[in-house]
Design a protein around this nucleic acid. Structure first.
Length: 565
RNA sequence: CGGGGUAUAGCUCAGUCUGGUAGAGCGUUGCGUUUGGGACGCAAAAGUCGGGGGUUCGAAUCCCUCUGCCCCGACCA
């Protein structure tokens, strides 16, 4: 590509609202332009990168035996009512009407459509297993779009759906996808981890997320230093502590804590550590309020709470009025001691081991000290309620857990029969009987990968693309060609021979001053750069510099080709 | 959805408190000088000050209202 024939649109300034590096650099490099909240135009430069990612994803999906197809982005309401998700999906589902007032949605995912396709196309077990995929634009009306294409409303996704007669077959394809994903992210040059993920309300046997490690990531992940255990923090089990609860040693005593509501305030006032306190959360259960008790230094894990039989999938804190009605106090002074019998008290494993602890007094402005389970407070049930913390033992018993931040770029999931059942997608088995198919689904956030890569690889000057994602491999910069026509000719010849070798080169023939040219090529992250100038011609060598190195070095043309091959 | 902020030239932003001729930098266009790390000079084009309503002799500025956008929060007592 000759840059004089391209539309490169770098800018020096960046809107103040671009917060993270990838968003800022994508705007500065002119890869994307915002059209509306969560909607971005991909410029020619940005599209080159997006296509690189897409191509690798496509190659590896094909290699793993998946078959590409393309489904509509707009989907009819009726299909979504069959699975019940027209209501359940909530506000993220963008609903639209056509001129006849028929209702549709812009597809946030394609389980319904692909299962409908499958139930019409797949009739015999002999057609299974099969794995369909597409690379399609999706729309999710995010509560709060942010970070550019990282959490956009419209985004490009690869989604695959596999169909099976047996669980073994599903597990096999799941494994194949897991491996394909590992190849994809490795080829893309990303530092990532596959982590166990929560399967959510859908259930199912297995789910893994592929997380690109980056401090700006929105997900918390944990991994063991003594094994290959890794999980999303939503999923990670906090091992049951060993040891017995000590016998009560202190008397229950009510103390004044007039304005101390938080664990930090209470523990500071009473001169105890947060881990000697119990915090009590009142949430709306399926049948009245439920108390959840945790050690003061621990945090509730909402996914774990959602799995309790007493609670709905997504628990909601009780309102101040509800709390006042049930336990006669306001938030900040709730405790397990003396709660009405109607309120189940579910206690975290670690909190259940405390003795002589501090907790809310169930009366405004007071807490208890010297509280003890059983003697002073009921335990309806002990459960794993908390999120793991740095230093916890790994659930597999090997090593200690560490926390990191990640950007979710892929997710593989064994769906089971949920959608096939709802849409009655079945095939005839070898006994001549109809059997509902089992499904897996496998997503990759193609556009998000571009942002994730930048989060992981950038410096003060701009982006450092991994080789596989770079819009071009090498930039040929022509310096001051007006003075010496041979400079242009040599640059042109070099550009030609690079192209003939199948090396993607960009010729910067815009006639900029050197500083502007270098700054642009560094900003847009081209891995290799060669400068052609009067000075270089005199020495008979090429001036080469790698994007990630501070110094240039002289190379012959042969050496340059060897480097790039 | 709750709270906060913001909207002025293509971009980034001053100006608003205290009403009185619309500003800067970057970018763009032209001419000239420059040419190894975002050059310099001269000249120029460019804004319905988000929309609507009101107050006033007079509104970017004050008041009301609508809209867009951004941030924080949406459970952790």
């Amino acid at each position: 590509m000759r840059l004089s024939q391209f539309h490169l649109a770098t800018v020096k300034e960046v809107p103040a609202d671009a917060e993270i590096a990838s968003h800022q650099l994508m705007l500065r490099a002119g890869m994307i332009r915002r059209l509306a909240s969560g909607l971005y135009t991909w410029s020619p430069l940005g599209l080159r990168v997006l296509r690189k990612v897409e191509a690798i994803v496509r190659e590896e999906m094909n290699r793993a035996g998946a078959i590409e197809m393309l489904m509509p982005s707009i989907q009819p309401k009726e299909l979504w009512e069959e699975t019940g998700r027209w209501q359940k999906f909530g506000g993220q589902l963008l609903k639209i009407r056509d001129r006849k007032q028929q209702e549709f949605c812009y597809g946030p995912t394609h389980e319904e459509v692909v299962t409908d396709f499958a139930r019409n196309e797949l009739k015999s077990y002999k057609q299974l297993p099969v794995n369909f995929y597409q690379i399609q634009t999706k729309f999710r009306d995010e509560i709060r779009p942010r970070f550019g294409v990282m959490r956009a409303r419209e985004f490009l996704m690869k989604d695959a759906y596999s169909f099976h007669l047996t669980q073994e077959s599903l597990a096999e394809t799941y494994q194949a996808m897991y491996q394909a994903y590992t190849r994809i992210f490795t080829r893309l040059g990303l530092t990532f981890r596959a982590v166990q993920a929560d399967t959510g309300a859908i259930g199912g046997n297995a789910s893994h997320e592929f997380q690109v490690l980056a401090d700006s990531g929105e997900d918390a992940i944990v991994f063991s230093d003594g094994s290959d255990y890794a999980a999303n923090i939503e999923k990670a089990e906090a091992l049951a502590p060993t040891g017995e609860r000590p016998a009560p040693g202190a008397a229950l005593q009510r103390v004044d804590t007039p304005t101390q509501k938080t664990i930090a305030e209470v523990s500071a006032l009473l001169q105890v550590t947060p881990r000697q306190c119990v915090k009590t959360l009142l949430v709306r259960g399926r049948d009245g309020l439920v108390a959840l008790c945790l050690r003061g230094d621990h945090e509730i894990n909402e996914v774990k709470a959602g799995k309790l039989a007493e609670l709905p999938d997504e628990s909601v804190l009780a309102s101040e009025e509800e709390i006042l009605a049930v336990c006669g106090t306001r938030p900040g002074f709730i405790g397990p001691v003396g709660l009405p019998q109607s309120v189940p008290v579910i206690v975290d494993r670690d909190a259940a081991l405390l003795a002589d602890f501090v907790c809310g007094g169930n009366a405004d402005g007071t807490h208890f000290t010297g509280a003890n389970w059983l003697r002073d407070a009921r335990i309806t049930r002990i459960a794993d309620l908390r999120s793991v913390v740095e230093g916890d033992l790994s659930p597999d018993g090997l090593g200690v857990l560490h926390l990191a931040r990640g950007i979710e770029v892929g997710h593989v999931f064994q769906l089971g029969s949920k959608y096939a059942e709802a849409l009655d997608a079945s095939v005839i088995d070898d006994q001549g009987k109809a059997q509902v198919m089992l499904m897996g689904c496998y997503g990759i956030g193609v556009s998000r990968i571009v942002a994730a890569a930048i989060e992981q690889r950038h410096d003060a000057a701009g982006i450092l693309w991994p080789q596989a994602m770079a819009p071009w491999q090498i930039a040929v910069c022509v310096i001051n060609p007006k003075n010496l026509p041979t400079v242009s000719a040599v640059a042109e010849a070099l550009y030609q021979s690079l192209s003939e070798r199948g090396i993607e080169a960009v010729l910067d023939d815009r006639g900029l001053r050197p500083g502007g040219m270098f700054a642009d090529m560094e900003l847009i992250g081209i891995p290799h750069r060669v400068v052609v100038s009067e000075r270089g011609l005199a020495s008979g060598t090429l001036e080469y510099r790698a994007r990630d190195q501070a110094e240039s070095r002289a190379l012959s043309e042969a050496e340059l080709f060897a480097l790039l091959d």
